[in-house]
Structures are given as C-alpha cells and as structure tokens.
Nucleic acid binder design. Structure first.
Lengths: 350, 350
DNA sequence: ATTAGCACTCAGAGAGTATGAGTGCTAAAA
DNA sequence: TTTTAGCACTCATACTCTCTGAGTGCTAAT
C-alpha cells in the first residue's frame, strides 16, 4: 500500500493535533482539520490504512488514533515544516546567550539551564571530557611571604588557579626556582605520564622544596582529572510534571531518577556526525527513555571539542519548534566559543 | 490543663509513629507503643486533651490523630532525643566531605547536593553574597604575543582568572606598565567606587593601552559582581516525589516550582543567631512553605562569611535524624574551610 | 482515675451503571 | 472504484451507591 498525498496530509494533521493536545485524534476532527473535502468515514478508511502501515496506533478500540514512533519518524523526516523562529524567540535566545552566559560561571554546564528555560522541557548538557590534556605552563605568584597563587594553563587554553598558604615563609628566589623546575619538568605531560618515578626525579632536583612541588603537581593533576572527566548537568526536571503524560507519578518517577543529579554521562545520547539528532521513543538505547524522545545538538567549544545540549520529553514533543530553537542556540554557542573569548573567567577555551 | 508526664509520652509516641508512617495514629496503636499500661480508652481521653491544647489534630472524625505544627514544635524543643549518628553515618558524611568536595568544583553550591544525598530530602544551598568586596591585586601573565592571562585576587582571598586574546601584538613592557597602572589605580575599590570618572582618569594615564585596561577592569567588575550576588542551588528535588504527602502532583507542583532552578535567594530562610534553625509549617514566612518544614544550618567559610545549607520536607520530617546529620556536615564544612585550604582551585577562600 | 462497651462517623474501596466519543463494517451513491 | 451515510459495537471515564473498618466520643461501671 502506498502513502498517497492524502494519507500524508492526514498523518501530518493527526500528528500535529496530537502534539498539541496529547489526546487521541478522531476521524471527525481530522475531516475538519483537512477542510471538509471528504467525510469522516473516508478519513476512517485512510486511518485504518495508516494503522496497518504502522504509522498510527490505537490506545484502545474506541479512542482516536495516536502516532506511532514510526509515524513520528516519518513526520520528522519528511512531513515536518521548518519552524521559523519569531523575532521574539530569536531575541530571547540572543538575550539568554548574552546575559546568562555572563552571569553563570560554568558556561558549559549551564547551557542546559538555558535550553530548559527556552523549551520548557527538561534538558541536559554534557561537557565532552577531553583526552590527553596536558599542562602547558605553570605560573606562581607570590602573595605574601607564606602564600602564593598557582596558575596553570593547559594545552587547550584552559586556565585554573589556586591559592596556597604555607606554614613557613618563602623567598621570591625559591619561587623562581620552583617555577623553572615545574615548567621544565611537568609541562606537556598527560595524566598517565606523571609517574612516581618522575616525581622521584623531581624530588632529587628540588631538594627541600619538594613539598611545594608536590603541592603544585597534585593541583595540576586535579585540574587534568577534572578536564578528562565528562560530566552531565540536568535542569528543568520539574517541567516534566507539567506534561499530561507525566501527571501520573508512576510514569514520571523512573524518568526523573534516570535524569536526576549524578547521572552517568554515558547514558545520554550524543549526535555523532550531524550537528543535531532526534531520537524517537524506542530508537533510544536506554530503557528508561523508550517512551520518550530526545533531541540533541552539539556545538563547537574550540580546540576541536564539542559540547552537547539536549532536551528530553514525551514522544509527542513539538519537534519543529524544539529543533529550531536548539539549533539556533547551538549555533549561538558555537559562535560565542569560536570567537575565542569566553565570558567567564574560569573556563577559558580558545 | 497541664502537660503531665504521661501526656508527653503519648505525644511523643504519636509524633514518632507519624514521622515514620505518615498515617494518622490511633489510640490503640499508642496504647501498645506505650507498653499497654493503660487501655486505649484512657489514651483516647488523653488524646482529646492534647487536641484541646492544640498539640494534635484530626484529619477527620474517624481517623487517628496527627501532630499539629505546635505539637512538632514542642517535640523539637523538649521531647526529641538527640539522634546519635551511627559509625556508618559519620563515615558516609566524612567520605562525602573528602570525596565530593574534591570532585565538585563549586564547593559552596554543591554542598546542597551532598545534603540532599545524605538526607533524601530536597536541599538547598545559599552562598552568602559578600559586601564591599574589592580587588587586592592584579597579575597579568603573558602567554603569547597576542594573549595574556588576567589573574585577580580579592581582599577575601578569592582568585579568579581569564585568558584574553588580542587582535594585535603586545610587548612585555606594555604589560608591565598595564600591571602597574591597574595595581595602583584599581585595587581596594568596591564595585560602586569604580566610576566612569575613574575610568576617564585611567584613560588619560594609559593612552593607547586604554582598551586593555577596560578589558581587565570589566573582568574585575564581573568578578566583584559575581561575589556580591547571592545565589541558590537546589538539589534532590526528585526526592520530594518519593514522599507520600507529595504523591499527588497538585501538592508537589507548587513546592517544586518554588524551589526549582532560578529561585530567589531571599525566599529561603537563614539561621540568624544559632548555627541551626528549624522552621515548622506555618512558622515559615513563604506561603509555599506553609505546609512544609525547613531545617537550615550555617557553616563558616572563612573571612567571617557563612554558607547556608538546608533541607525541605513535610512537617513530619525526622527532625532528630536530619538535624544530627546536617549539623555534623556543617561542622565538617566549617572545619574544611576554616583550615584555609580549599580542595578546589577556583574558589579559594582563606 | 480508669476501663469496657456501644453508637456513631467518615474516608476509601468496590460494584454497577450510564455516557459518549470513536470505531469498523455494510450497502448505497457518486 | 471511491466515497459516504448509517448503524451496531467497544470501552475508558465519570458517577452513584453501598459496604467496610478503623477510629472516635460518651456513658456507666469498676
């Protein structure tokens, strides 16, 4: 059986109605939506066909039809019209980019927050853990006789610092020596390359100052570790409860706990080749997401790394609107990072 | 009518049973809990008295009794026994302090996360915005000809940094000059004291390099602003839904939206004089919290500043357990910060 | 002061019924 | 061959009614 133009129109009308109302759609309503060119009986026949093609489903005999995941897929691939962002929408996103990014101190993670506010769905943001990060340079700044600041900068242009206080005093000369030693011995090394042997070598070279060396190096290790670690941030989980499909706690609970707090980054889908990906219901690998859809977009954060933001919702989510907003935001983020100037001080990528 | 010893025992038994089960407590159950010294009829009489004293309530005629807020208050003040933390519990908290604090990069905010995991209730953490922060020193570190790192340190020993890239090149001498100018002109100033006039003066002094000055100063302003701003972080909101009183979404929804995301710090109670405060039901100012209880504790973050962590839950929350855990954690945090060594690099307080 | 006994209350569960939106099928009309 | 009107059928939902049992307050006896 082939998908005539009329069938497509009907399918699209059904999906768009269902996206709006979350209620099964009946033949009569569609007849009207289509424009009364045919009667509801005809629509019924068509709907029966669409069902046998696997594009529609019936919650029970005497309800209307709802789209199947396959139906949504067809819709997303072929039927869906690009949602044009209104001036207000783009303005709102731009504002979020400008304002929020200045306010929030961990841009990467907090991008998720913006997404969730923008879409009114729960959102997540992944920081893509980097491989093989190394320290490019160390700087030690004397503050008082017994305190100094460590500043380390990685090869991916991330800068981190820490204030260290010491029980004993310290001369400018010592610090200078330390600085040289660090920059000659510990730059350009990955986490694995900082071995105990290396530390022993450093111990020989440094003598008394070895205690200081190990303080600085363990800070460097912390920095490298934190950068290699991938992290998830979820936000707007409460939005889930606003949706009719999650009014019942039994439905909401498992999804919430899947998403909440210390979620495992590996559980979240990431777009591979394309900048954006839509996963509908069972297309998701994770069991907890089998009844939900996920839209993910990635954005450029410089140095060839990509950040990921995504939205989670019921399969009937408004794909057109969400994808439009998400991709606009992702583009904005890419631009922001691509320019080489991060608004926040503690996360500097090129 | 006075509160005899027996009445107190009965009240306590009722409250502790209700805390456990969330079900109205009947006279028979209490007779048993007390030890069968008296019959249920006697308990009923006592309960009637307790009710007329405003310590108990009836959801309806033929249910058992539940404690009133006044009852909880009495319990908390006089009846409650100190909950002794078990070895496992203290160990768990210590571990959270050690481990989590190293992992998480924004200790202050993330303290809330630990609380929520520790108590299984939604939790919040406030960073107490500081007054009159000033920059104590600026450091500029040359990275490449067209890039340098700004490091600023505030009078409260917080260090922040940012990498700046420039379209044009820059000499070491220029940077040196800039450094001196910044450290003579812009240190020790509060946000309000950095006026346009001051900027004009700096413009005269700096000449061509003014563009750089304004870059650095606007970064400093950002830092000062971010420190003066009080922020809330809530976590573990999903725990709310595990509680029987919030199984119905209509109850949970308003509280969730009150707590969620961009909540206003001013809405959250803070302990004033004592290190810990319990607010029971209507004792809360905020309408949305009228049916809930809040336990808040503050901890020392150095430089005379205090952080606040708190737990939100139904009025029947297990005050004994929660307060014990919260205060132990708060003490641990105070110790951690008090030592002057913060585990994370980007938030250095004394 | 305590207790046994008893009538009374009332939320919640379960059963039965009505409602109506929506379907599939058939047979006639286009 | 396609479309349509008509009709019997389905079934989730809402509603009503009744029953049950935990729990109460009161009274009279201990």
């Amino acid at each position: 059986m082939d998908l005539t133009e009329r069938k497509r129109r009907i399918l699209r009308a059904i999906i768009e109605s269902y996206i709006q109302s979350a209620e099964p759609v009946g033949s009569k309503a569609i007849a009207q939506a289509i424009g009364m060119e045919v009667s509801s009986a005809t629509i019924r026949n068509e709907m029966a066909d669409l069902e046998s093609m696997g594009l529609l489903e019936k919650p029970h005999t005497s309800a209307g039809r709802i789209p199947s995941p396959k139906g949504y897929r067809l819709y997303v691939n072929e039927l869906m019209e690009e949602h044009k962002l209104s001036l207000q929408e783009t303005e709102r996103i731009n504002q979020a980019l400008r304002l929020k990014m200045q306010e929030l101190d961990r841009v990467l993670d907090q991008a998720g927050r913006v997404v969730s506010q923008l879409t009114n769905y729960p959102a997540f943001a992944l920081s893509s853990g980097m491989d093989r990060v190394t320290i490019r340079r160390f700087d030690l700044l004397m503050v008082e006789r017994n305190a100094f600041i460590i500043v380390v900068m990685t090869d991916s242009n991330i800068v981190r610092n820490r204030l260290i206080r010491l029980p004993s005093d310290l001369t400018e000369a010592q610090l200078q020596m330390l600085n040289t030693l660090l920059n000659t011995t510990f730059t350009g090394l990955t986490l694995e390359e900082i071995t105990p042997e290396l530390m022993r070598v450093a111990q020989h070279a440094a003598g008394d100052a070895y205690g200081l060396i190990s303080l600085v190096v363990s800070f460097a290790i912390e920095v490298l570790e934190s950068l290699e670690r991938r992290t998830v941030h979820t936000s707007g989980l409460a939005h889930l409860l606003e949706l009719p499909e999650y009014r019942s706690l039994d439905r909401a609970q498992p999804l919430l706990s899947y998403l909440s707090e210390d979620a495992d980054p590996a559980r979240f889908p990431v777009p591979k080749d394309d900048p954006m990906k839509i996963l509908i219901g069972p297309e998701n690998v994770a069991d907890a997401l089998k009844d939900t859809s996920v839209v993910v977009a990635s954005y450029d954060i410089g140095d060839g790394m990509r950040g990921v933001i995504g939205v989670v919702g019921p399969t009937r989510m408004d794909y057109a609107k969400i994808t439009a907003r998400l991709s606009y935001l992702a583009e904005g983020l890419s631009r922001l990072f691509g320019q080489g100037e991060l608004p926040d001080g503690r996360n500097d990528h090129k």
